[in-house]
Simulated assay, not measured.
Amino acid sequence: MSYNNILVEETRPIGTITINRPDKLNALNRETIQELHKAFKALESQKEIKVIVLTGSGEKAFVAGADISEFADFSEEEGGKLAAKGQKLLFDFVENLSKPVIAAVNGFALGGGLELAMACHFRVASDNARMGLPEVSLGVIPGYGGTQRLPQLIGKGRAMELIMTAGMIDAASALDYGLVNHVVSPENLLSFCKDLANKISKNSPVAISHAIKAINAGFKNTDGYAEEIKAFGQCFGTADFKEGTTAFLNKRKADFPGK
């Protein structure tokens, strides 16, 4: 599949998606959102791909925001539809993907860029990264899940301050806040993320998929404990569970079939 704004690399068991609009600091436009949706969907369907890494081209920006020129003259109705469609196609889609997605945050992750990173299952930042939600400086609010995911990750007070000031924080602060899991040098960012991905890929993909669903349920208007119980029980009916327990009892490494 060919794309205009992204690059996709498959080095099994890892799929890497790179947003490739360096002249626009990798800003998200409608075409890029659509392409990202297709790429994530395609990688999710491939059994051999166990983990997906998402990054931006160059060292300046992961994603420096949305492409404002596309919606500067939108009406209220058009603005609402823009947010709803974007959340469905990309941000909620990534969050609920059955395969783990690691955001490799290189440089600026602002507005829609930070919202995209937060939709990933966790984040690793280069030490030159800068993150923020500057939307209120444009007379609008974050519309791709930022007002919901940021408080979940860093707490209500800090999220309120970051959104209301339209400010940026550096990588060290993001680590301290719990917004990112790790901070590494720019030259080590992708290799670090791929090392993490390889560790994840050795575990049961079926169990990981259930874990993602159960964890996400706790942040929604559902009973996360009930979802955990349901998913826990379902694991007992999988070939991965049989392989994992048999391997453990026989003191060997598991070779999960992924079903």
Rank of each mutant, 00 (worst) to 15 (best):
M1Q: 12
N4D: 10
N4M: 03
L7G: 02
L7D: 04
V8Q: 08
E9V: 15
E9T: 11
E10C: 04
T11I: 15
T11E: 08
I14W: 02
I17P: 12
I19S: 09
R21W: 12
R21P: 08
P22N: 10
K24M: 11
K24R: 09
L25K: 12
N29F: 01
E31H: 04
T32W: 05
E35L: 00
H37E: 11
A39W: 10
F40M: 09
K41E: 14
K41F: 09
L43D: 00
E44R: 11
E44F: 10
V51A: 13
T55V: 10
T55C: 10
S57E: 03
A61Y: 04
F62L: 08
V63E: 12
A64F: 13
D67I: 08
E70K: 13
E70V: 08
F71I: 08
D73I: 05
F74P: 07
E78G: 10
G79Q: 13
G79C: 13
G80Y: 11
L82M: 10
A83P: 01
A83C: 07
K85R: 11
G86F: 06
L89N: 07
V94P: 02
P100M: 06
A103C: 09
A104I: 00
V105R: 02
A109N: 06
L110K: 04
G111M: 02
G112E: 02
G112S: 04
G112H: 08
G113D: 04
G113N: 03
G113E: 03
E115C: 07
A117Q: 06
M118V: 01
A119E: 06
A119G: 13
A119Y: 00
C120T: 03
C120F: 05
H121A: 08
F122E: 15
F122P: 08
R123S: 11
R123G: 12
V124R: 00
V124F: 01
D127S: 07
R130M: 12
R130D: 02
E135P: 03
L138G: 02
G139E: 03
G143D: 05
Y144E: 00
Y144R: 00
Q148P: 03
P151W: 08
P151F: 06
Q152W: 15
Q152I: 11
K156R: 15
G157K: 14
E161C: 07
L162T: 00
M164H: 05
A166G: 09
A171S: 09
A172E: 14
A172L: 13
S173T: 01
A174K: 01
D176G: 12
L179P: 01
L179K: 01
V180M: 06
N181V: 09
V183I: 05
P186W: 10
N188F: 04
L189V: 10
L190D: 03
C193F: 02
K194N: 04
K194W: 05
D195K: 10
D195C: 04
A197P: 03
K202S: 14
N203E: 03
P205Q: 06
I208N: 07
I208K: 14
I212T: 11
A214Q: 06
N216S: 10
A217M: 14
A217Y: 05
G218R: 04
N221V: 06
A226W: 12
A226H: 05
I229A: 07
A231S: 12
A231T: 09
C235H: 09
F236M: 13
D240S: 00
F241M: 13
F241W: 10
K242R: 12
E243I: 01
G244I: 02
T246F: 13
F248R: 11
N250I: 13
N250V: 13
K251F: 11
R252L: 06
A254V: 03
D255Q: 14
K259V: 14
